[in-house]
């Protein structure tokens, strides 16, 4: 029973990792940009939610704070893309990597300066601490369950956006061929900024559960980037549902590792990733083309 519980917890943890990964995957898919500051932006979003929650009347709940953080994070993504990342778009991979690495350092140290290195947690207002007892020895927390459900909803929503709407069509066209996309009247720079804004809104959702599930501090961003990256690669580039499965695999590897020895949690997650990379370099669900 203990192992069943471990695996269930791992799958639910995978929902969180899929939320981390979705924004990263979106930005790579549309503008071929790998954002090394992705993890730090998630942590930034968590602090934005903390601040908003403290400004709201007590008891109004973190979900309201999340909703208010969405436009803020959209603005952060939009501004980052227009102000900096759009200027790094050409064949060379170095400029975007250096610029986002620079932002990683700036965000991390900026948060340290403002919020100190103390670890924090989002305020709980009731439902977050509840849990369901499924069977003897297995109880599922409300937060992990809602987190997983959120990942499914976010991914389903993004898939609808990408495959069923006009702007999604423009995303796919620009990803295929930015120059020809301009001939359709698509301003690819503005489109990229919108995509970055959407990716940051997903980061805000991820940040909510980051802050509800565990303590966080300004320095944990890079580790979230690595989990996100692992989920994307394991799932296969270009498939958001694959990313969800990838997140679940990393999550289960971590909880199983932690079950054997608590110090092994992160290590087993990384090792699972490396093994899959060796066995299936293109991930479990690669896109058929290319």
């Amino acid at each position: 029973m203990q192992w069943v519980d471990t695996i269930i917890q791992g799958i639910l943890l995978g929902g969180l990792y899929a939320l981390y990964a979705t924004g990263l995957s979106l930005m790579f898919g549309i503008m071929k940009l790998v954002n090394l500051a992705h993890g730090d932006l998630i942590v930034l979003a968590a602090f934005v939610i903390v601040v908003l929650a403290s400004l709201l009347p007590p008891g109004s709940g973190v979900v309201l704070a999340l909703l208010l953080s969405l436009p803020i994070m959209f603005g952060v993504g939009y501004g980052l893309q227009v102000g900096f990342l759009n200027r790094t778009l050409d064949r060379d991979i170095l400029p975007p990597l250096i610029v986002t690495f620079g932002f990683s350092i700036i965000i991390q140290n900026g948060l340290l300066e403002v919020f100190s290195a103390d670890s924090r947690r989002l305020p709980l207002t009731g439902w977050e601490s509840a849990s369901l007892s499924v069977a003897s020895g297995i109880s599922i927390g409300t937060v992990p369950l809602v987190c997983f459900a959120s990942a499914v909803v976010v991914i389903a929503g993004l898939n609808f956006l990408i495959y069923r709407t006009a702007i999604g069509r423009a995303f796919r066209a620009t990803s295929d061929d930015p120059e020809t996309a301009q001939l359709m009247g698509i301003d690819h720079r503005r489109l990229f900024a919108i995509a970055a804004g959407i990716a940051m809104m997903v980061c805000a959702v991820a940040a909510l559960y980051l802050g509800l599930r565990a303590n966080f501090d300004p320095t944990i961003g890079p580790a979230r980037l690595l989990y996100a990256f692992e989920a994307v690669i394991v799932g296969g580039l270009g498939s958001l549902w694959g990313t969800l499965i990838g997140g679940m695999i990393i999550g289960v590897a971590q909880t199983v590792g932690a079950q054997i020895n608590p110090e092994w949690q992160i290590l087993t997650g990384h090792l699972a990733f490396l093994v899959i990379l060796v066995v299936r370099p293109r991930g479990l669900f690669p896109k058929s083309e290319g």
Partner: peptide
């Protein structure tokens, strides 16, 4: 932290 932020910013500015 201010020093590190400066290094990050310098790196970005140089690259751009």
């Amino acid at each position: 932290t201010w020093y590190l932020m400066l290094l990050g910013a310098l790196g970005i500015v140089i690259m751009l």
